[in-house]
Design a protein around this nucleic acid. Structure first.
Lengths: 190, 190
DNA sequence: CCTACCGATCGGTAGG
DNA sequence: CCTACCGATCGGTAGG
């Protein structure tokens, strides 16, 4: 009666467990029983535990990259572009909470090549925030005494912590939180 | 010639490795070789791996608790008390970076009783921030449209992320970062 | 603090 | 997807 699991199912379940218990705190047997399988059955879908981490994280990473590219090419004022970055980032977190949490907490356990790629990607992503801040400082939208490098880190700190404390069943809806968070950030830069 | 290791040495090394590789990513053999010992020799200093996590985290937790108590009893304006909380928190992070990182990332792996205690402690700690924000909203120091619960979370998000990205060898000194971070937060509330 | 272990669990494979 | 495994490593103990 139950349909066979797909690779998609396996990667999604891995994201859930890696987010909750960490990569090293999740065994292949844990993952199997989450799916109603023995651990040996997982290897027909994936080549190993490391590859599973790579797949989970690259899903999250790809979405953030796409957002940065989109904003990089977009027209609009610095404030509009910052708003786009902030709300886009938070919408990704809401929709891919497990992948994002795994990305943020477990990327250091990636095999070296993929780990390097993630670090480079995060640097480019931060550079997009920096560029928008510099643009807004230059045209007077943002405060002239802002240090773009640190300010980008502070903004991303507030955004990424969302993945650590937000729970969909919580009292506050994500839209209200996103709205309040953007205003907090806006007040810190304008 | 080498002096014997103390329990203090063991706990400090555990903090370093737990911060770097995570609790489940650190084996007792890793910890032993960090200290030039066999893993079996560790058990004359501590009762088990779990206890080591408890000791590392309770050091960090105790410092934050002391700060909140201090500010809770202190005189001064809301802005002064917030400044005390923010800079005090960051100074703890700078001085006990490994313990704080372990506290922030690995507390979920604590045995249930200690995990519950940490959750309760963090709630009380957040409540101190909330109380200071409410005080400042009431007397007009802070903006009247702030939501104290969310704002406390946003502030702690920026503060705690510091432990994830700050490196003592980095280009910026901790004092300049602390100063800039306080101003970012201040601008978000005033 | 070391020697010498222990049972349990780990990621993973061969073969069907 | 399961049966039946494998060698390596895990946290931990007994005894000195």
């Amino acid at each position: 009666m139950t349909t066979p699991r797909t690779k998609e199912d396996v990667v999604r379940a891995a994201g859930r467990l890696f987010a909750e218990r960490g990569f090293h705190g999740t065994s292949m047997r844990d993952l199997g029983s989450e799916l109603g399988l023995l651990s040996s059955s997982l290897y027909s879908h994936i080549s190993g535990k490391d590859q599973l981490l790579v797949e989970v994280i690259s899903r999250g990473a790809g979405l953030f990259q796409a957002l940065a590219d989109e904003v990089g090419e977009s027209e609009g004022t610095a404030a509009e572009r910052l708003h786009h970055l902030v709300t886009g980032h938070l919408h990704i977190l809401v929709e891919y909470l497990d992948e994002a949490a795994t990305f943020l907490n477990e990327a250091r356990f990636l095999p070296a090549p993929q780990h390097d790629a993630v670090v480079a990607m995060r640097d480019r992503y931060e550079a997009t925030y920096r560029a928008v801040l510099e643009e807004g400082i230059a045209d007077g939208t943002f405060r002239s005494d802002l240090e773009p490098h640190l300010t980008a880190i502070f903004i991303l700190s507030v955004l990424n912590a969302f993945a650590r404390w937000y729970r969909p069943q919580g009292a506050l809806g994500s839209d209200e939180i996103i709205d309040r968070m953007y205003r907090f950030i806006e007040d810190g830069v304008q």
